[in-house]
Simulated assay, not measured.
Amino acid sequence: MYSFDEKGELLPEEVDTINRITNIPIESLNLDAIAVVTNIYRVAQGLRNKMEQEVLSEYSLSWTAFSMLYDLWVWESIETKKLAESNGVSKATISNITKTLEKKELCYRKSDMRDRRITYVAITDKGKQVMEELYPRFHIGEVELVAGMSADEQKYMSALLRNVIRENNF
């Protein structure tokens, strides 16, 4: 019923999930799809928690605040609507996080001169300095998370995840 990996190993959570859902009368239960989505979710949550606790806490930054500051570091200034899309959050969330980052003097808002309805968020010099200190430590965490994978496996995993991103317009 379920296709095991080449080693025949499943995580305990996967076994529990399979045992629970196989009794549900779903016409075409796709256990492989369930496993992929569940594992992506677990990795994303684990990554977020690890980085917040081990790296971002020193700067009192949440995952979303760091992601937003990272985008500003890369692009210098970005419209709030695009910043929300890039981070997968609402404009209201961007507004709240911007207020927090402004209090820390890491970014500031500016209005579009041609259309006052459009607001941009820009990184400050202090924000750039924080990212220049923080990102190398963050990157070490990224490397540690995938250390058990070969370079080819990392490239393959990235390609597979990009497919999911493209197919779903994330």
Rank of each mutant, 00 (worst) to 15 (best):
K104L: 14
S158D: 00
V130Y: 01
M149W: 10
E58W: 07
E85R: 12
G148T: 11
K155C: 00
N19F: 07
L83Q: 01
R114G: 05
Y41E: 13
E6F: 03
R116Q: 15
K82G: 05
R116L: 10
R114L: 13
Y41N: 14
K50L: 05
K110S: 08
I94S: 14
E6M: 04
E13K: 12
T124G: 03
A122D: 07
I118Q: 04
D112S: 09
R48P: 03
N23T: 11
K82H: 15
V74A: 13
L56A: 02
Q45W: 13
N39I: 05
N169H: 07
M51C: 08
A44C: 03
P136K: 13
L160C: 03
N49V: 09
S158M: 00
D125L: 06
V146Q: 04
E13C: 06
T64E: 15
D152C: 13
S62C: 04
Y70F: 12
M113A: 13
E58C: 03
E85H: 14
I24Y: 08
Y2W: 11
L106R: 05
N168S: 03
Y70L: 09
N169V: 12
P136H: 14
V146L: 05
K81T: 14
E9N: 08
A33M: 03
E54D: 15
T17V: 09
Q154C: 12
V146K: 05
R162H: 00
Q129C: 05
H139M: 07
V164W: 00
I78H: 03
E13W: 07
E27L: 01
D71C: 08
D152V: 05
N96F: 10
L160K: 00
K110N: 12
Y108S: 06
E144P: 01
E76R: 10
I140A: 13
S77Y: 09
V15T: 15
L56H: 02
I118F: 05
K82R: 15
E79N: 12
R162S: 01
S90A: 04
R109V: 13
S86D: 15
I94C: 10
P12G: 13
N30F: 06
E14A: 07
A147T: 08
S86R: 15
I26T: 06
E54K: 12
Y59L: 04
G127F: 15
L83F: 04
R48Y: 14
T124C: 02
T38H: 06
N30Q: 14
T80C: 08
I40P: 07
S86F: 09
D5S: 06
C107I: 04
V89K: 05
R117W: 05
L161R: 00
N168M: 03
G127V: 02
E132C: 08
T80G: 00
G8I: 04
D32Y: 07
I34E: 14
I97Q: 06
I26K: 04
K128R: 15
R137I: 01
I34P: 02
V55L: 12
A65C: 11
S3N: 04
I123V: 09
E54P: 04
A65G: 15
I140Q: 06
E76Q: 07
I97C: 01
S28W: 08
K110V: 04
